[in-house]
Each structure stands twice: as C-alpha cells, then as structure tokens.
C-alpha cells in the first residue's frame, strides 16, 4: 500500500482541490475553516496558481464568478454566515451556468451562533444557494479521505454540469485528523470550452457570460436547461453508502459526521440485539430517494439522526411517502449526539 498522509479536513480540502486541478482560490477567513485559505495561500503559489484574500465573502464569490467565466477551476470556502453572504453570487452562477466549488464547514446557527459542529445549513445548500429556480449539487463527506476525494472530484463535476457544486463539512470534519491516500493530479489547465471568456480571441465570436434573460420565455428555457442537468445529475451523481444488519428492523438515515457517530451507535445497539442498518447519503442533492424508498417497504421504522432541528429529515420523509414511520433525533446549536445516545434511541424504538 502506498503511503498515506495524516491531515485534518481543512488541509484535505486544500490538497484535494489542488490535486483536482484547482488553481484559483478566493476567500475570506472564518472559523472553523480558516486553515483552508491559509493552506491555499501557501500551496497555490507553489503550483503556479493564484490565491487572493477577498475583502468579503460577497467579493470572494464574485471573484470566483469572474475566474469561472474564463473556464478556470476555482474554489471558495467558508462557514455558514459567509455562505449566507454568497447567496446572490451563487444564484448568478446558476443563471450564468458557471462551474465553481464551494465548501461550507458548517457551524452552529442562526446568527453568529458558534463555531461548533452543526448540520443546520442543509436547506441553505440543497434548497438555497440563492434566489430563483436553481439548486446546488451538494456532497457530504463523513471522513477525511472522503473530504479529500469529493473535493478532488467536484471540479470536474462542476464543469460537467456547468454549475456550482457544494461540499458540506462541519467543525469536526474540519479539524479531525485521519490518514489520507492522495491521488494523481488532474488537469489544471483552463478548460477548453466554447463559452469561456478571455485569452486572445483571434477573431473568434465574442463570448458573454450573463444571467440576464429579459424575455420570460428565454428565462423559462434556461430554467428547463438547468433542471435537465439536475435530472442527469440524479442519474449519474447520486451517491450513498450502507452498512449494518442485512435484514434490519430499523433503517437509520444520517449524513456526514452524524453518520459517523451513528456507525458506532449501531455497533452498540447491535450488541444489545437491535437489528439496524445505516444508510448515509453522500450526495444530498441529488438525493438518494430510490434506496430509501426501497428500505421503507421492508423496515419497521426509519430513524433520522441529524445535527439540526430537522432539515434533512424532510427529504427522507419525501422519499418514504408515509410507507413507514420516520422518527427524528436531532441536536442543534453545536451539540452533538454520543454513540451511546444513538444506541439508546434505537433501543427504545
């Protein structure tokens, strides 16, 4: 086995991005992810890239818009309040069909909240991402290796769909350390697109990146085009993983760090005779509706464990459509379940 490197999620994000071909980074410091811009400011000059600290998250996302308009692999990273500030820019990216990778190391909210681990930006990422019709392809890693891998792959996915792609981490994933297998560097050159601006035109027709569609029919057409891409993403990018009992009575649905906690919780519950299985979505949008629906016909109950007041649980309920009861166990504001607590909830279902 080749060598692995011990790193935290922030560093894995930076290294995964650089290996994935990212050469442009615009961002603004915010805990718990400031080590990502710090790492990028160190590493990008080494590989001929550009790091720039923006004056705000608003400026950062719009700098990304400019770089993305040139077909560059570009990233910004932030945490919850900063992502709120980026919403208009993200919506412009939907409208102008621009690829960008946006990492949100989610912290407790609302407001300034705190810097502890939370999953309360599920809606912000999967439903929000700004005004208008448009949704954000969203991945949720549960390990540092997966933080690395998903960041690495997201640049090409963003380009494939000409759309922003977001990753949801949290304060634990940002700072927890695990060994990571690094991957072969991907192409970092500007993408050869027929829509990118800049460079020497040499008489080629002008390209214009815009999200203004004054004619309602033209805007409707754009929105249909975006949703056709989401439909393709649903076929080609839906990801999830399962573990636990083969013939479960209970299906546990959790993502990210909550799924990691549930893994141990399930082991404890199994020792006490509870037959449960964990299904963890790796892509939150597109959502793994089909496997959850299938299990809902076989299990007695579904338990959703989530670090929020209940956002992800709504997608599970939509997938289940009343086929079985869906129970919810949530902590919020930075409070995190213990595995014992999850095992306890499972034992009482």
């Amino acid at each position: 086995m080749s060598e692995r490197t011990l790193m935290d999620g922030n560093r894995a994000t930076a290294e995964g991005a650089i290996a994935g071909g990212c050469r442009y980074f615009f961002g603004y410091p915010i805990t718990p992810q400031s080590h990502i811009p710090e790492r990028m400011s160190l590493r990008l000059p080494e590989v001929g890239g550009v790091y720039l600290q923006a004056e705000s998250e608003v400026a950062a996302i719009n700098m990304c818009y400019g770089a993305a308009a040139c077909g560059a692999k570009v990233m910004t990273t932030s945490s919850s309040p900063g992502i709120s500030l980026m919403q208009e820019g993200i919506s412009y990216m939907y409208g102008a069909e621009l690829p960008c990778v946006i990492v949100n190391m989610v912290r407790g909210g609302p407001g300034l909240g705190n810097i502890a681990a939370a999953q309360s930006d599920y809606w912000l990422s999967t439903r929000g991402g700004g005004h208008g019709d448009g949704q954000m392809i969203t991945f949720a890693p549960w390990s540092i290796q997966e933080v690395y891998d998903l960041t690495y792959e997201s640049f090409d996915i963003a380009l494939k769909y000409r759309a922003p792609v977001s990753l949801l981490g949290d304060a634990i994933l940002a700072q927890m350390m695990e060994p990571v297998q690094e991957r072969k560097p991907l192409d970092a050159a500007l993408s050869q697109t027929d829509w990118g601006i800049g460079g020497e035109r040499h008489g080629r027709e002008k390209n214009v990146i815009t999200s203004i569609y004054i004619q309602p029919r033209a805007l409707e057409e754009l929105n249909h085009r975006l949703y056709a891409r989401y439909a393709q993403a649903a076929r080609e990018e839906t990801r999830w993983a399962e573990l636990g009992a083969e013939d479960p009575e209970i299906l546990v649905c959790a993502y990210g760090i909550a799924a990691r906690i549930c893994q141990t919780g399930l082991e404890l519950a199994a020792a006490a005779g509870v037959k449960a299985r964990l299904l963890r979505p790796i892509s939150l949008f597109p959502f793994p509706t089909a496997p959850i629906r299938e299990w809902s016909e076989k299990v007695r109950k579904i338990l959703v464990v989530e670090l929020s007041m209940g956002q992800f649980v709504e997608d599970v309920r939509l997938a289940v459509e009343g086929r079985c009861p869906v129970e919810f166990s949530g902590h919020t504001g930075g409070v995190v379940h213990t595995p014992e607590e999850v095992a306890g909830v499972l034992g009482n279902l």
Partner: peptide, 14 residues
C-alpha cells in the same frame, strides 16, 4: 456592485 470583483477574477486568470 460586484463588477470590480468579477474583473479581478478574470484579470487574475488572464
């Protein structure tokens, strides 16, 4: 209001 930021992104790439 964001044109200078967008211009910055383009100029840094090209």
């Amino acid at each position: 209001g964001r044109a200078p930021a967008v211009a910055t992104g383009v100029k840094r790439v090209h």
